[in-house]
Structures are given as C-alpha cells and as structure tokens.
Amino acid sequence: MQRFLDKFSLYDLIVIAMMSALGIATKPIIVPLAQIITGPLFIPSGAVAGGFYMLWLVLGFGITGKRGTMTLIGLVQAILVMATGIVGSHGVLSLVTYTMPGILADLGLLLIGHRVCCFPCAFLAGLLCNIAGTIMVNFVYFRLPVAPLVLSLSAAALSGGLGGLVAFKILQQLWKFQRRDWKTSKDDIA
C-alpha cells in the first residue's frame, strides 16, 4: 500500500481530497433534482444523478494522470460519508459502494491504455463509474427486478458517460489555461 501511495505527490493528494469533497458536496443538491425525472419511471435517482457526481472521479484522474486516482477518490468519499453521516451513507458498506466505481473505472482505463485523454475514454470512465455505483447500491438496498434494473443501468450508463464528457471538457479548459500560463511565464523570463 505504501508503494502505491508513494507515486502520488502532495499536489495529487490535494486534488484527490478536493475531488472527493466536491463529489460529496454536490450529491445532496443533484439527487433531489434527479428524483423529478426518475420518480415517475420508478428507478433510483442515483442512477441518473450519479453521472454528475461521478464526474469528479474522472476529473481527478484527468488532472493527476495517475492510475488509482479514481479508486482513492472513491475511498476518501466513503470515509467522508461514514465519518460525517452525510446523506448517502450506507454505513460500513459505503467502503464498497463508493470505492467500487473508482476501481472499475481505473481497471477499464488500464485495460484500454488510456488516461482520460480523449472523449471516448472519458465517456467510458464515467459510464463505468456510474454503472458500478448503481449495481453496488442495487445489491445493498434495492434488489430491483430485471426490467427496472436494466432501465436503471441504461440510465446510469448514459448519465455516467455524459458526466465523463463534462469532466473531459473541464479538463480541456484546464489544459488550455495551463498552456497559457506556461507561455506567459516563459515570455516573462525572456
């Protein structure tokens, strides 16, 4: 475990902590809004809302570029909800329900050899995060029959993928500002 954590700089760990906190902070705002859409369809609101709070995992990995970032963000989120008792806590099972999305997305991007570097892999990362989260919460709480589960997973896949695309667009803007700052500092030196 120590060797795994040693590859993360202090900057990376700060990004991981910030993305974790932002994910937890946005959840209570997004879930009630998603309930407006999902209520009539009888699917869990987290399937739709998850795409928007899972984007923080994808964004964190895009910023650090280090494998395992999404898993660490999920783990920190689990610890945060257990420690604070924030809405969305599943007790000790939060360790599984919050960490599994990061694990699955990290493994998915490892298998295809990408690091949130393009639209397709960002879409895939968000999709995997949200599908994993939806499946875990279904096993822990809902245990939906097959038809609503398939509908829920379909909504989760679309929402998660769109969240991944939003994260990638944010990354593109960050990269643009980073290049601009680098160019400005280079001109100042000259």
Rank of each mutant, 00 (worst) to 15 (best):
Q173K: 04
L124D: 05
I86V: 14
V150S: 02
I79T: 15
G102S: 01
S159G: 01
H90N: 13
T84G: 10
I131S: 07
V137H: 00
C121P: 04
R143G: 09
F119D: 03
C121S: 11
L127W: 07
L111S: 15
L124N: 11
V146R: 04
L151E: 02
F119T: 05
I86K: 15
A147I: 14
L162T: 11
I131A: 12
V96G: 09
Q77T: 11
K176A: 07
S89T: 14
G113M: 02
L107T: 14
G126I: 13
L127Q: 11
L174G: 00
S89R: 13
N130F: 02
Y141L: 15
P145E: 09
P145I: 02
N130E: 06
A167K: 11
L104M: 14
C129S: 01
Q172C: 12
A122Q: 10
P101A: 11
L165F: 02
A156S: 07
V92T: 11
L124C: 07
H114V: 00
A105E: 13
S154C: 02
S89N: 15
F168W: 13
G164K: 08
V116A: 05
L93G: 04
P120G: 01
S159C: 03
V81S: 08
K169Y: 07
L171A: 00
N138K: 14
Y141Q: 11
N130H: 08
K169S: 10
P148S: 09
A105F: 14
L110F: 14
A78F: 02
A147E: 06
V87P: 00
F168S: 05
A132Y: 07
V81T: 15
A78V: 14
K176E: 06
I86S: 15
V92L: 08
L104R: 03
G160E: 03
R179C: 01
C118H: 02
Q178A: 00
F142R: 01
A157I: 06
S89L: 03
G126Q: 10
